[in-house]
Design a protein around this nucleic acid. Structure first.
Lengths: 219, 219
DNA sequence: GTTAGTCTGTTGGAATTCCAACGGTAGGAG
DNA sequence: CTCCTACCGTTGGAATTCCAACAGACTAAC
């Protein structure tokens, strides 16, 4: 295994684990690194996976083909991030998606069972790792639930207000900065950018909020 | 602890664990049962929780109040099901929701850390429990992701086709039965029931699908 | 059989969103 | 400075959805 420690440090799953402990941990987990060329398929639709992946370099995409053959991109996974962990952990029999590389990539694979079952040596990192894994999946869960709350509103105005008020609540302040530009926000809320811009202006004119670029204030 | 074994058997988190092993397991986890009257608050918005709950009898609701004070119901949790597990596992500092009882209830509480860290006795159920927990949270994750795929489509027609084709794929057959009535399906897809009904009829007239009640066939 | 209640499909007008196109502004490159 | 590009707001007509109301089919209770 080449030296990927600078990437591994940034992986949330390994948070709280000393850099010096990473190597023994990975061999304990029987982790394996594979090299992929651009455009290769990592996980095939329909197969059953027991390992999930971590992108060490390059990028992968999670894609889905529907009944009619239309392909849609569900996620782009960059260096330092996990993919397939939900499917591996949920012990899904047939993968409903495919994972393909969009660039030459180094990918690390870890067996979900190995992670969940304490090893014979009872190494001390294991419980930390398990907590991190649970935390990672749970946080994704919370983020997804929140997104659904926003997007399930019927009008653009309500979606915006739901999102912005949540951000204000999170910031604990009526003034806050959002991490999206307009196009990204529109995509996140599943609305049209121009219609959203118009609605933002309307909200401003109605005296509900002020904004400048990514800075917002609810009045 | 009174005899709740008939409920506990049905809890997914304990799948694969012998009924006779449940009692020692629960005491190993330091699980506690509390009684609540109807309308009591179990978890308060803003607090930090380390335990999640399992409904043994009665019902709880997960509710959220937005910036403007409007309350919305995020979930109704019946007997045998978990609540708060994502927040407890993700180690969220301030709970963004409240949990309240909608009926007189018996609730079981389990510490997330206790669950993730192998106990001193190294009891054999632990790794099974951890796998079940990971599996439970991951499955919820997958379900949420799928729902977002459907609802993020722009038109009712596309939402319907995305959902129905996914059901067909899941069933492995162009004929299948859905678990919703019309109103529930409309709520799930975040569209208007009547508009959805109209669109279903249009899809039938266009020769794309057939249906009778909850039975559908894609042509 | 009658009645009440629930579920589903239909319809028409009001409201909203989509879509494409355009203009303005800010920032970077040459 | 000028050109170029990216981002944002605006606008108007087309398309879609929402909303309320109603009618038919079915079920359960009496």
């Amino acid at each position: 295994m080449i030296n990927f420690s600078d990437v591994l440090k940034t992986v949330r799953l390994f948070k709280g684990i000393e850099e010096s402990d990473l190597h023994p941990l990975l061999s304990c987990l029987d982790a394996k690194v594979n090299h992929y060329e651009k455009g290769q398929t990592v996980f095939f639709n329909g197969e059953s996976i027991e390992r999930f992946g971590i992108v060490l370099s390059g990028q992968v995409q999670v894609v889905q083909d529907d009944y009619f053959g239309n392909r849609s991109i569900l996620a782009k996974i960059d260096s330092g991030n996990l993919f397939g962990e939900s499917f591996a952990c949920a012990e899904i029999k047939t993968l409903p998606v495919s994972v393909i590389t969009t660039a030459e990539s180094e990918l690390l694979f870890i067996d979900c069972h190995r992670l969940a079952v304490p090893c014979a040596k009872a190494c001390g990192f294991h419980s930390r790792l398990i907590q991190n894994m649970l935390s990672t999946v749970s946080m994704k869960n919370i983020a997804l639930t929140q997104k659904i709350e926003f997007t399930s509103k019927r009008t653009t105005r309500e979606k915006l207000l739901a999102y912005l008020s949540a951000e204000a609540k999170k910031a604990g302040c009526s003034r806050f900065t959002i991490p999206f530009d307009r196009q990204e926000l529109a995509d996140y809320l599943s609305v049209e950018r121009s219609a959203m811009s118009a609605e933002l202006s309307k909200l401003r004119d109605d005296g509900v909020l002020k904004f400048h670029k990514n800075q917002f204030e609810i009045l």
